[in-house]
Design a protein around this nucleic acid. Sequence first.
RNA 1: GCCCCAGUAGCUCAGCCGGAUAGAGCAUCGGAUUCCUAAUCCGGAGGUCACAGGUUCGAAUCCUGUCUGGGGCACCA
Length: 545
Amino acid sequence: MLPIESQLRNEIDRVLQELGFPQIDYVFSIPKFENHGDLSINVAMQLARELKSNPRQIAQQIVEKLQPDPELISRVEIAGPGFINFFFSIGLLQRVVKDILQEGEHYGRQETFRGKRANVEFVSANPTGPLTIGHGRQAVLGDTIANLLQWQGYEVTREYYFNNAGRQMRVLGESVRLRYLELCGEAVEFPEDYYQGEYIRDIARHLHEKYGDSLKDRDDIEIFKNTAEALIFEDIKKTLARLGIYFDVFFNEKDLYEDGSIEQVIEAFKSKGLAYEKDGALWFKSTAFGLEQDRVIVKSSGEPTYRLPDIAYHRTKFERGFDLIVDLFGADHVATYPDVLAGLRALGYDASRVKVLIHQFVTLYQGKEKVKMSTRKANFVTLDELIDEVGADVTRWFFLMRSMDSHLNFDLTLAKTQSEENPVYYNQYAHARICSILRKAETQGVSYGRTDTLERLGEKSERQLIKKLMEFPALVARSAGEFAPHLLTQYLSEVSTAFHKFYTECWVLTDDKELSQARLALCLATRTVLANGLKILGITAPERM
RNA sequence: GCCCCAGUAGCUCAGCCGGAUAGAGCAUCGGAUUCCUAAUCCGGAGGUCACAGGUUCGAAUCCUGUCUGGGGCACCA
């Protein structure tokens, strides 16, 4: 909501009451066309339904009694089927620029959730291989959502959950051992369903250099598995760091067994009559929570299924006192989380605090060719390789520019060859251009940052730019509230467009000192919004390009 | 068979808590630079919003059904 909206809303509510109209829900919208004003409401059309009367007449009655502050609103108009359109006065636009310059790097931040704590879990890939492009999408989305929540006042913990004890890890250890034996000169048959990647050979080589052939007759895989885990995790962290992503907590599933959490969950289920034995396995009565079928939580072999530790893990998030718990998963996990939420409800927790976000897959193309990605088969393109090709900024922007509900078709050839035309440069260039103007002003001895000549602004491109800048705080709030970073990438491009247009139409450094001051202030305000927006997205804002 | 996501311009995608004339980037065609960065700007062309019904003063948007693509529906994670 724009700041101006709350003032207008008060005034409109007053008039509606005076006219004896029912209180009704109406929304402000920003019209697509300039001649429809700067802000518009459809309240008369909504009322027409209730009152069974002509919407234009209702609008007429409302407008006659409206007395908006002329410092802020210059004109009110009825149009179309009954829209009431408001036109901003220059005073309002001046105030916007002043506010932005005053708030600076805090412009767009809100305290809505001050004192609240959020946990954002993402990536959570087990250390079986390098991060793929699919992980990249999740990593960048998760980190940016965490940033957005911080801008709404949340204290955020970024968390990575992993399991280094399962079957996957045993296969990993075996894979390394076989490659190691190859290096010792032994002929080995390497099973097809083992990890095929070159990085397995690298790890084996590392061990061979360190220990020679001395591990040849070890019949346990511990050293192979542990070395692989350590080296791969180191790699994963390095890759994430290249994107500016740092986790606060790496949570090992193993701890849930060691500290008794798993056992506690089982006991809690049993004592509530929500667990029962059948066919040698332990089942969770998830149908009691609206699910279609009951689920096994402990296999007849005595091993828990993934659900049990997942439930125990999420229980720790509640126990650690988080007000908001965000889980980011790929589309392949879409069927697993209802079990976990049911489990949490069974334990008496408020599952509505858990926000599960599902992102669709990245399909990689080499030109027209679709590339299948599988860590096991090693025919993937790693996230590291992508960053090598296009850089961290482009990588982040690319993963953020689409709704997470949409499949991302990532054409690697295009990303490599046309990186110059990537939209991220468009935005960074706008920022760099502004910096260039400000440098030029400095060399000419013109000071900037003064706001006492802002009444000189009024050109169409100036008004449009300011109106865009005004939307920023509300847009950030919406982007955070909907967990939708792509709204912000889109918005920033609109800001850049508005700026480039202004740049083309309005000369900043002129002989008219006052006009120059005013336009410099507008440039500074624009730079502030671009810099703050890029900061949230985790993308650099270069001063030169 | 059931569940989730998507289907909008040649391509990639926004818009989807109902609103005025359906948008952007790329590609394509044409134009703009004496002067703050042309990694820019302006203009043209390009659409049965998958299809069929329904609700409404008004539907790309909500409801029902169908089709297509992706992902799921384990005592795998």
